[in-house]
Amino acid sequence: NKFNKEMRNAYWEILLLPNLNEQQKRAFIRSLYDDPSQSANLLAEAKKLNDAQA
Rank of each mutant, 00 (worst) to 15 (best):
N1K: 05
N1E: 07
N1M: 02
N1A: 02
K2F: 12
K2I: 14
K2H: 13
F3D: 14
F3T: 11
F3K: 11
F3A: 06
N4M: 04
N4G: 09
N4Y: 13
K5N: 03
K5G: 03
K5H: 03
K5A: 03
E6M: 04
E6W: 01
E6S: 02
E6P: 03
E6A: 04
M7R: 01
M7Y: 04
R8K: 07
R8W: 15
R8E: 14
R8Y: 11
R8A: 10
N9F: 14
N9D: 08
N9V: 14
N9E: 11
N9L: 13
Y11H: 06
Y11K: 12
Y11Q: 05
Y11F: 08
Y11R: 14
W12P: 00
W12F: 12
W12S: 07
W12K: 15
W12L: 03
W12Q: 05
E13G: 15
E13P: 01
E13A: 15
E13Q: 15
I14H: 00
I14N: 00
I14F: 03
L15D: 01
L15W: 06
L15S: 07
L15K: 14
L15M: 07
L15G: 03
L16H: 15
L16T: 11
L16Y: 13
L16R: 15
L16S: 11
L17A: 07
P18A: 08
P18W: 05
P18V: 05
N19Q: 07
N19K: 08
N19L: 08
N19H: 13
N19P: 00
N19G: 10
L20W: 00
L20Y: 00
N21Y: 15
N21R: 08
E22Y: 14
E22Q: 12
E22V: 10
Q23K: 10
Q23A: 13
Q23V: 10
Q23N: 07
Q23M: 11
Q23R: 08
Q23L: 08
Q24G: 02
Q24E: 06
Q24H: 06
K25P: 00
K25G: 01
K25H: 03
K25V: 07
R26G: 03
A27M: 14
A27L: 13
A27F: 15
F28A: 03
I29F: 14
I29S: 03
R30T: 04
R30K: 04
R30V: 04
R30L: 07
S31M: 08
S31Q: 09
S31Y: 06
S31L: 08
L32H: 00
L32S: 01
L32Q: 01
L32K: 00
L32Y: 01
Y33V: 05
Y33S: 02
Y33Q: 02
D34T: 08
D34P: 03
D34S: 14
D35R: 14
D35Y: 10
D35G: 11
D35T: 12
D35Q: 15
D35H: 08
D35M: 14
P36E: 02
P36R: 06
P36I: 03
S37F: 09
S37H: 06
S37W: 11
S37L: 08
S37M: 12
Q38E: 10
S39H: 15
S39A: 06
S39E: 01
S39N: 04
A40N: 08
A40S: 11
A40I: 08
A40R: 08
N41T: 13
N41V: 09
L42H: 12
L43Y: 04
A44M: 12
A44D: 10
A44N: 12
A44S: 11
E45K: 14
E45I: 14
E45V: 13
E45P: 00
E45W: 15
E45L: 13
E45Q: 13
E45D: 11
A46G: 03
A46F: 01
K47N: 06
K48G: 08
K48A: 07
K48P: 00
K48R: 09
K48H: 10
K48L: 13
L49A: 14
L49G: 02
L49H: 09
L49R: 07
L49F: 08
L49N: 06
N50R: 02
N50S: 06
N50H: 06
D51W: 15
D51N: 13
D51M: 15
D51V: 13
A52Y: 13
A52W: 12
Q53H: 12
Q53R: 02
Q53E: 10
Q53D: 09
Q53K: 02
A54W: 11
A54E: 11
A54L: 06
A54T: 11
